[in-house]
C-alpha cells in the first residue's frame, strides 16, 4: 500500500469512526445511567437522517441559499425534533418498566425499534431516498501526479469537526454544569441522588434527549456526506455503533468516541489491506479479543464486585 492510499484509508476510517462515535455516545450514556441496551437508538438516528432530508428540501423550497445558514438551521431543527423522539421513546417504552426485571426494557426496546422502522416505512415509503449533493467540493492533499493524492470532501471535514465539537460540548455539559453533576450522581447511585433532591426520572429523560441529539448530529452529517438513506440504516449502523460503545468501555463518554474511531479505522484499514468481505468479521473478532484481555473495554472502569 502506497503512502497516499494508506493516508486515504486513515481518512476514510476517521470519518466513519466519527459517525460511529457520535451514535455510540447515545448507547453509552443510556447504559451508564439505567444499565439497559437501547436498541431503538439506531432508529432514532435513522429518523434524524429523514428529518435532515425533509428540512433540507423544505428550506430549499423556501429559497434559503446560503450554505452556512442551511447547515445551521437543518442541524438545529433536526436536533430539536430528534431529541423529542428520544424523549418520547423513553416515556412510552422504558419508563413504565423502570422497576421491573433488567431484561424487560431490552425487549420493549426491540419492539420500539420495529415500530420506528415500520412507522417511517409506512409514511415515507420503503425505497432508498436521497438528498441532492449539498456540500460539494473537496480538498486534495499531498498531490503528486494524476493518481497520487489524498482527497477529502468538505462534508467529511465537517463530520470530523462536528464530532469533535459535539463531544467537547457534551463533555463540558457532563463535567462542568449542575446538570452534568446530577447525571453523574444518578449514574453512581440513583436512590442516594434522589435523597439529595435530584429527580431521577428527569435526569434519565435528559440523558435520552442528549443521546438523541448526538444521534441527530450524526444523522444530519451522514446525510450531508453520503446523501443516501433508507429506513433500515438505523439497524445496520446501530449494531456497529453499539459495538463501538462496548469496545471503548460502555458507560464511558471518551470510551465511546475512542471505540468508534478504533472500529472505523480497523474496518477501513482491514478492508484496504486484506479483504472487504471479511471486514465485519474482523471488527467483531477485534471486539471479542479486546474484551477477553480487557473485560470492561478500552476505557471502562473494571467492575468491583461487592459482597
Amino acid at each position: 500500500m502506497s503512502f497516499h492510499i494508506f493516508v486515504q484509508q486513515v481518512v476514510n476510517g476517521l470519518v466513519l469512526g466519527s459517525v460511529y462515535g457520535l451514535i455510540a455516545v447515545g448507547y453509552t450514556m443510556v447504559y451508564g445511567i439505567i444499565g439497559m441496551i437501547n436498541f431503538a437508538h439506531g432508529d432514532v438516528y435513522m429518523i434524524a437522517a429523514y428529518l435532515t432530508a425533509i428540512f433540507l428540501a423544505a428550506l430549499t423550497l423556501l429559497g434559503v441559499q446560503s450554505p452556512p445558514v442551511i447547515i445551521l438551521l437543518v442541524l438545529l431543527l433536526t436536533i430539536a425534533v430528534t431529541a423529542l423522539y428520544g424523549w418520547s421513546v423513553e416515556r412510552i417504552a422504558y419508563r413504565p418498566l423502570r422497576h421491573s426485571t433488567r431484561l424487560a426494557p431490552l425487549i420493549s426496546a426491540i419492539g420500539m425499534s420495529l415500530i420506528l422502522q415500520n412507522y417511517v416505512r409506512l409514511s415515507q415509503g420503503g425505497r432508498t431516498q436521497g438528498t441532492p449533493t449539498f456540500l460539494d467540493g473537496s480538498v486534495r492533499l499531498f498531490e503528486q501526479g494524476p493518481d497520487q493524492f489524498v482527497q477529502i470532501t468538505h462534508a467529511q471535514i465537517l463530520i470530523v469537526v462536528m464530532a469533535v465539537l459535539g463531544m467537547g460540548v457534551l463533555w463540558y455539559l457532563m463535567q462542568a454544569t449542575a446538570m452534568g453533576r446530577a447525571c453523574r450522581a444518578v449514574q453512581q447511585d440513583r436512590i442516594m441522588a434522589s435523597l439529595l433532591g435530584v429527580d431521577g426520572d428527569r435526569v434519565i429523560s435528559l440523558v435520552f434527549v442528549l443521546g438523541a441529539s448526538m444521534a441527530a448530529v450524526a444523522g444530519t452529517l451522514v446525510t450531508f456526506n453520503y446523501g443516501s438513506f433508507d429506513f433500515f440504516i438505523g439497524f445496520v449502523t446501530g449494531i456497529k455503533a453499539f459495538t463501538a460503545a462496548v469496545l471503548g468501555g460502555i458507560g464511558s463518554l471518551p470510551g465511546a468516541m475512542l471505540g468508534g474511531l478504533v472500529l472505523g479505522l480497523s474496518e477501513s484499514i482491514f478492508s484496504g489491506l486484506v479483504n472487504t468481505d471479511y471486514k465485519d468479521v474482523f471488527a467483531f473478532s477485534l471486539l471479542v479479543l479486546v474484551l477477553i484481555f480487557r473485560p470492561s473495554g478500552l476505557l471502562g472502569r473494571p467492575e468491583v464486585e461487592k459482597v
Binding site: I92, A93, I107, S108, I110, G111, M112, S113, L114, I115, L116, Q117, N118, Y119, R121, L122
Partner: peptide
C-alpha cells in the same frame, strides 16, 4: 411489522 412491534412493547 408495526403491529408486531406494538404488541411487543
Amino acid at each position: 411489522g408495526l403491529l408486531f412491534g406494538c404488541a411487543m412493547v
